[in-house]
Simulated scan of single mutants.
Amino acid sequence: MSHRIQDIPENDRPRERLLRLGPQALSDAELLALFINTGTKGENALQIGERLLREHRSLRDLSRMEPVALTSIKALGPAKAAKLAAAFEIGRRASREAAPRDIFLNTPQNVYEFAGPEMQALSYESVRLVLLTTKLTLMRMDEVFRGTLNECNASPRELLRKALAHNAHAIILLHNHPSGDPTPSDADRRATRRLRDAAATMDILLQDHVIIGSPSESRPTPFYSFREHGMI
């Protein structure tokens, strides 16, 4: 392959292919090339995109890198790294942007579809509290802690005060396992029981505790629902 995008036939260049066929027709490397824009000596933007995917395995893994870490990648630098980080963040925000209708979170599958894509992209464990109406539609979702539940020092009553402050009918505890395996730890189970018992004393429904993982061939369901497993 030539070291210059300009030497690729015009109809085969990423930008022209996107405008002609739509973004869904482009490969991951071609999409990256549009943000990288210019190459370096020995590599054009498309080749750089292909190398990033080889070195970092997937777009998901690349998107989980901190912006400062992106700047250390050969051929990126601060400007290109900032563009890539901004593109990944736009995708995350779009995935969680509320639709103009009520968002029903009455099933673990609905919870996963709402929050899964964003939380799967995180390289750290994020604990979130989801507040629900009487119809189990979304009121708000707040990150309450970063780190494992075993390290979390927020008591159940402190979490429930947030629900009381917003007059929420029900809550969902939600966190991710960056390893991809959503199997609950002993700390996850203890935290669920404590929150369930405390919620009952405040007449607030603990609708579920959902752990977000990642899909794999051996794991077709990329989440774990404590309600589905009879623990709530």
Rank of each mutant, 00 (worst) to 15 (best):
R128K: 15
D197R: 15
A191W: 06
I90E: 08
P67W: 02
R140Y: 10
S123R: 01
Y112M: 04
R92M: 15
P108G: 06
R60V: 05
R157A: 15
L84T: 09
T192Q: 12
L76W: 04
R64S: 14
S185D: 01
T183V: 13
L62N: 03
E151R: 03
G180D: 00
A198R: 01
I103K: 00
L84E: 09
M202P: 10
A154L: 06
I172A: 05
L138M: 09
L84N: 06
A79D: 12
R196I: 02
P117A: 11
A79T: 12
A191M: 08
K80P: 10
L70K: 12
E151G: 01
L62H: 03
D142N: 02
E118Q: 14
A163M: 02
Q109K: 15
A86S: 11
A121P: 00
D142W: 00
E97A: 14
D181Q: 10
R193S: 13
R101L: 11
L136T: 04
L105R: 05
R60N: 09
S72H: 11
R193C: 11
P182K: 07
L105C: 03
I172Y: 07
V127Y: 06
R93I: 02
A94F: 06
D197V: 15
R190M: 09
P178Q: 07
H177C: 00
M202Q: 13
S155G: 10
A199G: 12
A81V: 11
L195R: 05
S63F: 02
D186P: 13
S58G: 12
S155E: 15
A86K: 13
N176H: 11
E143N: 12
A98D: 14
E89W: 04
P117F: 09
R157F: 15
R93E: 09
D186F: 14
R96V: 09
R101E: 13
A79P: 01
